[in-house]
Nucleic acid binder design. Sequence first.
DNA 1: TAGTGGTCTAGACCACCAC
DNA 2: TGGTGGTCTAGACCACTAC
Lengths: 243, 243
Amino acid sequence: MATSSLSSDDRLPAYVRLRDTLTARIAAGEWTPDAPIPSEMRLAKEYGLSVGTVRKGVDGLVDEGLLERRQGSGTYVRAPSFDATLFRFFQLREADGSQLAIPSSQLIVRVAAKAPEEAADALGTDRVIKTLRLRSLSDLPVLYEEIYVPADRFEGFVELPAGSFGPLLYPLYFEHFGVLVKRAIDDLSFGKASETVAQRLRLSAGDPMAVIRRTAFDLEDKPVEWRIAHGSAAQFRYRSEIS
Amino acid sequence: MATSSLSSDDRLPAYVRLRDTLTARIAAGEWTPDAPIPSEMRLAKEYGLSVGTVRKGVDGLVDEGLLERRQGSGTYVRAPSFDATLFRFFQLREADGSQLAIPSSQLIVRVAAKAPEEAADALGTDRVIKTLRLRSLSDLPVLYEEIYVPADRFEGFVELPAGSFGPLLYPLYFEHFGVLVKRAIDDLSFGKASETVAQRLRLSAGDPMAVIRRTAFDLEDKPVEWRIAHGSAAQFRYRSEIS
DNA sequence: TAGTGGTCTAGACCACCAC
DNA sequence: TGGTGGTCTAGACCACTAC
């Protein structure tokens, strides 16, 4: 193949421009997680770079979690998998104390709506689709979520058959709407349960709650989802490593 | 200088062994944050490696936050500075809503003691020195801490003049006891204020509290401190980015 | 201006995986 | 056995900092 050109500002280092170019190609859905992307050797030839420089560019995307190396086999795009991470804020035990449980999801509402102020601020629009969801561990409700996505990027979301929804939303965003969530910011605080929240979670109004607000961004760092989740403070547990 | 030898198992990659060797030299206090460590060129000659390999080894320590590069100047050891990070769990505003405040510290007790069970489990010994500390923002108490360090590594801690204590403990650990804290694990949960905690923080017993348990480790990954901190849940706010 | 880290090249050999 | 990523070399030129 003839030499392709790297995108963007040519004052930037080659490995940065390669990183941006590869990110765009991943975002375009050019490669799936099943097959490896072109080898470092091929990429080097395609872009007229040395293997070492390609390596440094790919390293960046591996660090970001967008790619995954498998020695002897190739480099693969990694399916986003941190949708479930709200649960890192809560104890992941079944009621009987046994192993890690896979949370189940129950959709309550999906409807076009006007975004509440916080969501509109985060998303830059108030034309949204609102989803209410209840997540449970062994049939015990643990987390109650309100989720807002911009209507213009998620046309047809409301009409999707309920069967399309698994426990994770982000893979669905990508498959049906081409929206790839790359990072998210969680904002955690504490408050008391409102009537509706308490009812959903089978608690009493005024019970102490952990409140997690999340804004999710796509590969171009545009906000694509805002959600607010409520869970019982009693079950809350968070572990973080710093260094 | 003649070629020095890299420490440890020679089946490991050279850059890993260099990383371990440099870590040991940093732990030994061979370099201070004021002067650069030897240049990549010098290290390459000293250990009989190419500059590229040295670079990869140094990169690892830079990622870990142990070293810091300054282009045109050199590579420097970085003074540990995350002692104050308990405050990342709380709003860093003065009461009047103005800018970031520097928390002040007030030592209440320092005494040799028998460690409570949790601390003994974390530290592997129950012969400890116990410190009680109150941290405030503009004279408003925010955080109440119990801190335990193993007595055998902190001999003379109780006798240190109070003037030696600044707002941060970890620099003091290093300067007086040669203990370099490299990483820590924070474990966050929620509970209610006990009598003593409430009194220290000018709250009422039973008020909702954020409880942060921390275990800190040195360069060899041995536990060197365990602490439990209490703060008002109302002031709690945590932000985290995931990707 | 001399020395440092930052980028980049064009190779080499090895460990590992899939066919 | 051929191709992949993993490690390593021995250079080069550039951007920046300190003196």
